[in-house]
Design a protein around this nucleic acid. Structure first.
Length: 307
DNA sequence: CGGTTTTGACCCGCGC
DNA sequence: GCGCGGGTCAAAACCG
């Protein structure tokens, strides 16, 4: 009973925050399941531009993500318990702090001797950092950024989400012909990472796992704002909208992260509802947006120019 | 030329 | 201790 209430509350939160439907970047956005794992970290399983073959994750009640057997759709969740974000979260107090120490002595540096000295210094610096990280690791309990996972029915692996990403790795996934790609947000001082992989049980499904929270609004103007059909006031309006969207995201993320309730799997109606709301053919999305879409929703009609 | 991707090497945690 | 698998690094290649 209590479970159900909580779930309903969560649904409301999402809907009140307009997190069902299209985001400013032309992607459908929705959720279907939420789970708090045994470690106390919220794991959210969601649907995102998900089509008619929507499957629900079959996670037994009272079993945490970290211990459950491999779910039907998202094999990678087997590894959710593992988190090595700690190392990456370590950052120098200032991004260039290490270069400061070397640059202060490097102005008159030209001969090879000094170069090798520099190299030695650099190596030492790196060793220091390594030691520091190790010490930090042994002293601190593992801290894991909340992760949010989306299942996307899409032919395209990397979907536009309004942020800029740099790929930093790719690994083969065990028992899967599809590799997993690792991305990091390109914005300085933003530690958000995401992983992309295709489900091997349903190759039409892309699983995107976000880790961490952006510390900045989306740097990308919504796709429809790039068509050149907007005047300045419309562009301003869009950028305001983007800011709002960012705040909503933050709010939602906080809300979800603070929720505490046991997992309740028996919500087929919710799944069905989500399914109904979504366009079955992902390829339709762009056309749908052009014809019915996003701009009319968020930009007053007088700001729209006729091409 | 600067930013991004590729890819093999490396590190680390975990299970045996 | 060892092997395995996931995650990250970093040099080289690539690209606009």
């Amino acid at each position: 009973m209590e479970k159900k209430d909580t779930v309903v509350k969560m649904e409301g939160t999402i809907e009140d925050s307009s997190f069902s439907g299209y985001n400013p970047f032309g992607n459908l956005f929705d959720f279907c399941e939420v789970q708090k794992s045994s470690s106390g970290i919220m794991d959210l399983l969601g649907v995102h531009e998900y089509g008619s073959t929507l499957q629900c994750l079959d996670i037994p009640q009272n079993q945490s993500l970290s211990t459950m057997s491999v779910p039907k759709v998202v094999p990678s969740f087997e590894t959710v318990k593992e988190c090595n974000s700690e190392l990456l979260n370590h950052q120098p107090a200032t991004p260039n702090s290490s270069s400061i120490s070397s640059s202060s002595t490097s102005e008159a540096v030209n001969d090879e001797h000094n170069k090798s000295l520099e190299q030695a210094e650099e190596e030492e610096e790196q060793n220091k950092i390594k030691k520091l990280l190790k010490a930090k690791k042994t002293n601190q309990k593992k801290h894991r950024e909340p992760r949010v996972a989306f299942m996307t029915k899409s032919e395209v692996d990397h979907l536009e989400d309004g942020y800029r990403w740099r790929k930093y790795g790719q690994k083969a996934v065990k028992n899967s012909p599809f590799p997993r790609s690792y991305y990091r947000c390109t914005s300085a001082s933003c530690n958000v990472k995401k992983r992309l992989e295709r489900s091997f049980t349903d190759p039409s499904v892309v699983v995107t796992t976000y880790e961490g929270q952006h510390t900045h609004p989306s740097p990308v103007i919504p796709r429809l704002g790039l068509t050149g059909s907007l005047d300045i006031s419309a562009a301003n309006y869009l950028s305001q909208y983007q800011e709002q969207y960012f705040q909503q995201q933050q709010q939602l993320f906080n809300t979800l992260s603070s929720l505490s309730f046991p997992y309740n799997h028996s919500t087929p109606s919710k799944i069905a509802l989500a399914q109904e709301r979504l366009v079955c053919n992902p390829g339709k999305t762009a056309a749908f947006l052009r014809d019915h879409g996003l701009l009319q929703d968020i930009v007053p009609s007088h700001m729209l120019k006729q091409e």
